[in-house]
Nucleic acid binder design. Structure first.
Lengths: 239, 239
DNA sequence: CGTTTATTTGAAAACGCTCAAGCTCTGTGG
DNA sequence: CCACAGAGCTTGAGCGTTTTCAAATAAACG
């Protein structure tokens, strides 16, 4: 692994304060692999063999039944996924696939569990990561149960505008059908939700969305810190 | 605190294998308090001051906006709640209220964080608890996004039948409107979902539900281990 | 440039919510 | 023990939202 990548991984909250030896052990037994776009990295129900770190690219976490499929999360660099399955030594609950060509660091699950037992700082970081992830899930569930589709979209726009740092402009970084699935609706419904938001100053041009009246949009969205505020934006750059 | 209660709390996965001193420190600075039914124990957005352990009774975790409210979980003895908020030292994302007269053990958040730092076994238990909770949330979110209301009810019935251990019979242990909210629907809709399930061998008598054709019901519910299987039934006796 | 894939639009159906009324159950006080 | 009030539950009607299916348009890719 190139040193710049290692340095980036080291900056993750999960690894930032752990012992050098621990980090070394984790890294040296890992694979850094490049995947093209559209590759399924892990499949639900398979045993959790590796902790995955996305070094570069974009990854979609999703789950499916016979007939339906939904996007649970979109993970951007530098981010970690399926930590909980690795720790519990259970099957993955989610599948993962690349949305863009991606560099993925795969750390053997066994090594993660071992490192956790030997390095208190690492275990501590794991606790914080899990607690954050847990709370993030609750927020998602609250949004899903308490809001309509258009409201979820409006709040997603407001939050993403803030994350991306360009006032009045949001760029959708995935296909719209992925965003729709992430927000818990069909692609058709996302189109209609955008139409609804036209009345509140939202204009769509392809993957570029303009927000001309932030106050009006916020009035419709009724954003709620206990649903929308990220507690840590480090590995949540995308959504 | 009476010794039988202390023993019950000690049996929790979270405390089972921790050091005696740690357990003592946690317990001796805690309050065991009795609450009548219908008391709000914690409110969303308030700072997380205590880790709560339900020793006896029943507690509803819920969240609300201006106009809507939803039940996120129902916690039965002996169970722990809002661990993640305590660890992150952030505001509660959920409110909690008693559904029955309840004995609640309240452990100062500060003590929990301190004990975690001094007792590796406790930190380890916290990791496992959080990982389980995280995965439980994912399952809930999957159910919410991938299933209709009637499907969620059907799967809830099948799982609860198994949990309660009486083949062919499920007893609803809360008001139906709470169950409806837990399943992500209105009380009216729950009634109609039960009507739908009549065709698959489900008969309702007040809070008693009879399942006369488990295979037929399962055929409708299409249960999925990656959504429905509990990974730990210890503090999930109710739902 | 043509083919494929994604997005949008329209129409119809399914689903879920709200409102209102009636019913059931429970607990209280006469 | 009965009557009654209050709360919860069910049912019906109407409505709004979301999904599905189908077709048209737009965009992306070779």
């Amino acid at each position: 692994m190139r040193s710049e990548n290692a340095a980036a991984v080291r900056q993750l909250d999960l690894f930032r304060n752990i012992h050098d030896d621990t980090f070394h052990t984790l890294i040296e037994t890992s694979f850094l692999q490049r995947f093209p776009r559209g590759v399924t990295l892990i499949r639900e129900s398979e045993p959790a063999d590796f902790l995955h770190v996305i070094v570069d690219g974009l990854v979609e976490m999703f789950a499916a039944t016979d007939t339906r499929e939904t996007t649970l999360d979109i993970v951007a660099p530098v981010g970690v996924f399926i930590l909980a399955a690795v720790l519990n030594d259970k099957a993955y609950l989610q599948s993962a696939r690349t949305l863009e060509p991606s560099n993925i660091l795969m750390i053997p699950a066994e090594k993660v569990r071992l490192a956790m037992e030997t390095d208190p700082a690492f275990m501590r970081a794991i606790v914080m990561e899990l607690a954050r992830g847990y709370r993030r899930m609750i927020k998602d569930l609250k949004g899903q149960k308490l809001r309509t589709g258009a409201e979820r979209l409006a709040n997603w726009l407001l939050r993403t505008e803030k994350d991306q740092g360009h006032p009045g402009l949001v760029e959708i970084r995935t296909e719209k059908r992925i965003l729709a699935s992430r927000l818990g609706m069909t692609p058709e419904n996302l189109s209609r939700a955008f139409s609804t938001l036209k009345a509140h100053g939202v204009t769509v041009n392809g993957l570029r969305v303009e927000i001309s009246e932030p106050e009006a949009l916020a009035g419709f969205a009724k954003p709620n810190p206990l649903i929308d505020d990220p507690e840590n934006a480090v590995w949540l750059a995308i959504d």
